[in-house]
Design a protein around this nucleic acid. Structure first.
Lengths: 343, 343
DNA sequence: GCCTTTTGTGCAAACGATTGCAATATAGCT
DNA sequence: AGCTATATTGCAATCGTTTGCACAAAAGGC
């Protein structure tokens, strides 16, 4: 006839080290060490405490642990959306990257804190870092925030960004050689017979800007006219209209399209199909990234592959090195042309 | 002699409330209240302290704050991958969902902790919850972990899952009526003239199982034969081969395909194109989800839309209610048929 | 047996914030 | 001026761990 009816068997829940210490008849210190599997505590005491913990489903409070150890075990993954306010966290390339990063981090016992940031104030990165919650930060893409990243990198080491690398750059970045990638795309289009080429994508961000630069260089090397460049927003609801308008504008004046990403390329493919333009016969199309779905389009998309898996691994390796206080240089990987049916 | 003091502008960094309190000449309590914009502290003191904090770029240590307040301000987003060990966090539907969830949570001042879990031990959810790091948990998909979720939901309230709802279910779920969606898909295929239908997808998870059940019901209502069902793995590198094999196996025996997700449908479209099968004339294809890229396929994919945006909002609303101690019922939304060109 | 080592445990001080309560300064009234 | 009500600020306890150090018990050496 106890008043508290529901706590039948299990007496008060074990929530803290102290609780557990009490029922184990030892000090919290011992419990703490036992759970950490410290060699300091006697083997049977350890076993007994661990069993007790298991039985009561006890898990130490992470907040307290982190406060005490000054190690959070959390790394932040941040997607800066500076140039693309309406974009949702949905670009398949970034998402695949996120998946691999998540894998690598979880494997190493780190938790992930995800932020999708629209850099409105200029201290967005400082805010994330200064919260004291993070052992390190991974940026997926530099967006148009190169300056902000540089500034922070000057005094904050455990920071690695996916993206471009510039000669004078201070922050650690991992990425493919976008200039080379752009060149390859250009050469591929030209080799297929294309002469008048359009580039679909905003060139304001370093990554895409370099791809565009590579394309220009390739065309120039062949003695061809500079490409026409069109801005394209990544928000899915406007992209198709924009591309459609651009294609309509250039009409027959082009015979090749280099899209800044596969999603853009796929949309372009769709728009061209609508207009009855046969790809690649009439217009050749090449994308960038090689997202999984790129192999499933009709026609299959020719594209420049960025190897996400090794890229993610490189990012995490670099980050761990920097967390450990070592130094880690930027890495620039080589993109590879994946020749399929669209160019 | 002047005392050592404020003249050293660049002196020791301000890291703690105490540091700031010292240079402000007040107690930590006042600083704490000032930064929290408490009405208890005098307006000018407040302003002075805030200015000082700003100037030194001071941000309070979150770990300490959370330990003290017992509120973490973090919600966990967990993607259970029970039935699909090789899947990376990459299904566009889940990713779009993640984006919307991230938006809604960040808007409300919550941080996100992302876990991609392969439920190897059966207390994976307990482990996540018991860490004391999370104010609440959002599950993106139930996978085949219905039992585990139910078990935890019995004693842990702030938990909301995307997925199916069963009559006897205890945990709060938000999702579309998958049975109805399956029915709609079936009816659409039949209305277009299809008679022998294949279902592409594993029926082990409740969500997809219900879609399949809906399809069966629709066919039965029309007096048609039961559909053929094929397992398909979500890992992108094997999916195409699997589907290809399945299509080859049934050969001319089918004239309609209902894919459990748009990604599967897109791959099916590709496979059919390879075989020279004209969609929808020879085989009609319908997908599920309506991911952004579904509108960009050739031919454009007919599909059953799940409204991610309102779904995510509903999940977050329910979670907040539950965090606040209120009760929130499961919600089941109506899927809608998006008729495009593939069926 | 006495004096070192070696093992195990316990004590208590951090970690850096928040907050109930006490204390003081200021204002408001006769 | 005297006294109360109110606006500010300070004190100190607390959140739940970890860990340096002291300490006790057992073991080893002579």
């Amino acid at each position: 006839m106890g008043k508290r009816g529901r706590s039948l068997e299990k007496s008060a829940r074990i929530r803290t080290l102290a609780d557990l210490a009490k029922i184990a008849g030892v000090n919290t210190a011992t419990v703490s060490r036992a759970l950490a599997d410290s060699p300091l505590v006697k083997t049977d005491t350890k076993a007994r405490i661990q069993a007790l913990a298991q039985e009561h489903g006890f898990r130490p409070n992470q907040m307290a642990k982190r406060l005490r150890t000054q190690r959070t075990g959390v790394v932040g993954i941040v997607v800066p959306l500076g140039h693309e306010k309406r974009q949702h966290l949905s670009d398949p390339f970034f998402m695949t990257m996120l998946g691999y990063l998540a894998d690598a981090l979880t494997e190493n016992g780190y938790d992930i804190m995800l932020s999708r940031v629209i850099p409105d104030t200029d201290d967005w990165l400082e805010a994330i870092i200064g919260s004291g919650m993070l052992d390190g930060v991974l940026l997926i893409g530099q967006s148009d925030q190169f300056e902000a990243i540089e500034r922070v990198a000057a005094h904050y080491r455990p920071l690695v960004a996916w993206g471009s690398h510039w000669p004078e750059q201070r922050h650690c970045s991992v990425g493919t050689d976008n200039f080379a990638g752009g060149q390859m795309a250009g050469q591929c289009l030209v080799a297929g017979g294309a002469r008048r080429i359009a580039f679909l994508g905003e060139v304001r961000t370093p990554e895409i800007g370099q791809r565009y630069a590579g394309l220009c260089a390739a065309l120039q090397a062949e003695g061809l006219a500079a490409p026409r460049q069109f801005d394209v927003h990544l928000a899915s609801d406007v992209m198709e209209q924009e591309i459609s308008a651009h294609i309509a504008e250039v009409g027959d004046a082009i015979d090749g399209v280099f899209a800044a990403s596969d999603v853009i390329a796929m949309t372009a493919l769709r728009v061209l199909a609508d207009r009855g333009v046969v790809v690649p016969d009439r217009i050749r199309v090449i994308g960038y990234d090689d997202i999984p779905l790129a192999a499933q389009t009709v026609p299959r998309l020719t594209t420049i592959r960025q190897d996400v898996a090794t890229g993610a691994k490189a990012m995490v390796d670099a980050l761990f090195a920097r967390i450990a206080g070592e130094d880690a240089a930027s890495v620039q990987m080589n993109p590879v042309l994946v020749r399929r049916d669209s160019a």
